[in-house]
């Protein structure tokens, strides 16, 4: 599903964010991307959804070489990738339902389908009783769930999440994790960038460890620090 061949990313300020990355994430994988702040986790995720292009090397997502993807086709790649950001990026002038529906509206889905899909997702994440609420009235955990709902409502092939449990208490974090596992079980490839040691160790999933832009370890059923 996701392949990286000798990927380098150097930013204009000469900072080497990623250095010779070779990775293969198969369809249906659940992968933790761990490492200290500044290790290149966010850059790694950005490469996958074509938020940035590699300085060198190839990134292939669902058989498409992103370096050769025409800009006009980026939207169609994005429809296959759900992204959950650390800073949520919610629309605070719309209610919960509309925030989730937004993903479907921009792809021109029918109202009846939007209604059905959004309600279904809100049920799954346990926010249907708050669908008319404004996001800023939600707790941190609920906002995170809302972001996940928005990312998966269009049934993407890949879900990328950046520090999904960053500011949450362990209990809520585990709830979010369980939600991600569930999404993974349905067949979505999930990549979670995290430095939440507790969660990573508890999850017993594949762990890719980045340090200063390089992959230092890649273990099945890994733990946070090897």
């Amino acid at each position: 599903m996701i392949r990286m061949f000798h990927v380098f990313k150097t930013f204009p300020n000469k900072i080497h964010a990623l250095w010779d990355i070779n990775i293969h994430i198969k369809k249906g994988d659940f992968v933790f991307l761990v490492g200290p702040t500044g290790a290149g986790k966010t850059t790694f995720l950005k490469l996958i959804y074509r938020g940035i292009l590699p300085t060198k090397g190839q990134v292939i997502v669902d058989g498409v070489n992103l370096s050769r993807l025409k800009p006009s086709l980026i939207p169609y790649l994005r429809r296959e990738i759900g992204v959950v950001f650390q800073d949520f990026k919610l629309l605070y002038d719309r209610n919960v339902f509309e925030n989730v529906a937004f993903s479907l509206r921009v792809v021109g889905a029918k109202n009846a389908i939007i209604k059905k899909e959004v309600n279904e997702i809100l049920n799954i994440i346990g926010l249907s009783h708050k669908k008319n609420t404004n996001p800023h009235l939600l707790s941190g955990g609920e906002q995170q769930k809302l972001c996940i709902a928005r990312a998966i409502v269009s049934h993407p092939l890949i879900l990328l999440t950046d520090e999904p449990t960053g500011n949450l208490d362990p209990e809520t974090s585990w709830e979010i994790m369980k939600l991600l596992f569930k999404i993974n079980v349905w067949g979505t490839t999930v990549v979670v960038a995290s430095h939440d040691k507790l969660m990573v160790d508890k999850a017993q999933k594949r762990v890719i460890r980045l340090e200063q832009g390089e992959v230092v370890s890649d273990t099945k059923k890994g733990i946070y620090s090897q």
């Binding site: 959804y49 939207p75 269009s154």
Partner: peptide, 9 residues
């Protein structure tokens, strides 16, 4: 967000 969830330009 529009660009992110796949809205065309």
């Amino acid at each position: 967000i529009m660009a992110l969830v796949g809205a065309t330009s």
